[in-house]
Design a protein around this nucleic acid. Structure first.
Lengths: 155, 155
DNA sequence: CAGTATCCCAAGCGATACTG
DNA sequence: CAGTATCGCTTGGGATACTG
């Protein structure tokens, strides 16, 4: 990718018009990412989320409320057989749409932060073949990262 | 993708063996993401980084040091013609490897946080065709998100 | 179990001033 | 311009206790 600090570069555009900067505003928090990771993995209940990542209850409480307010998470009732109504937390549509980002981050973390072989990754359900995150064109064919650049696509 | 909170689910595995959780530990900070975004876009100089995102100098200073220590950023000398040596900040190899994650987050932010049409995105340099982030198999062919699951791939 | 309320305290933000 | 140093002050983290 050719975006060094040289000759032709992106026009500076303000963070408030940049999806990445806006994403940073929402996701730029350790606990937020850890919680969304839990939901992404299907852990839906307060105590399960809490126990796995060691977050204080009060913090989890406020973060979940924030995430619901931001429409990344939905709070859904369920009834444990015979018990009274409880709540589960699930990714909203907006939250589910983070999947590709999370898979990319998972790959990155596995490659760069983990000392040993990655324990988990995406596979095609039918064939069990391992998959990876990449850029593709309209036809779904991969395009190498080296042959791309960032450009205005607002037209 | 089939990982609801039902029957067959991932074995719970601890955050310290999960690339995503580890990534959250490094990237789960608003300023860190904003700074890396700047470097990703080719903004390399202290004052430029600072001015664009409105970060206090002291915070920028410590964050950059942290990022260098974490080997996401390298500090590189340059000589303004006739002036004395100054420093630029660039993504390290590890940092550059975040590209796919950032592109995915950019897409997500553009889709979900921006009110209007996205100002910027990846295009193939030669053809100028717009690209998107997707999962591909070994042959570089796209696989739909719906037909995948997360699985142990450590063998 | 599933949270909310309270409270104390340290971390760290950000303004300002200073150095090369 | 490119940072480091100092510092008051707030935010919010996290322990504990409490409610349904």
């Amino acid at each position: 990718m050719s975006n060094s600090a040289d000759s032709e570069r992106l026009p500076r555009f303000p963070p408030d018009r940049c999806g990445l900067a806006l994403a940073a505003g929402v996701l730029g928090d350790k606990w937020v990412l850890m919680i969304l990771r839990q939901l992404f993995y299907g852990v839906a209940r307060f105590e399960d989320i809490r126990a796995d990542i060691g977050i204080p209850k009060s913090v989890l409480s406020t973060r979940l409320a924030d995430l619901v307010a931001a429409d990344l998470v939905v709070k859904r009732p369920y009834k444990p057989d015979g018990g009274r109504t409880r709540w589960e937390y699930h990714l909203s549509k907006k939250g589910v749409d983070l999947a590709m980002s999370f898979l990319a981050l998972l790959e990155w973390g596995n490659r760069n932060l983990l000392g040993f072989s990655p324990p988990i990754g995406p596979v095609e359900t039918a064939s069990r073949r391992r998959l990876r995150v990449a850029l593709v064109d309209e036809d779904g064919k991969e395009v190498a990262l080296q042959s791309i650049r960032l450009a205005d696509v607002s037209k």
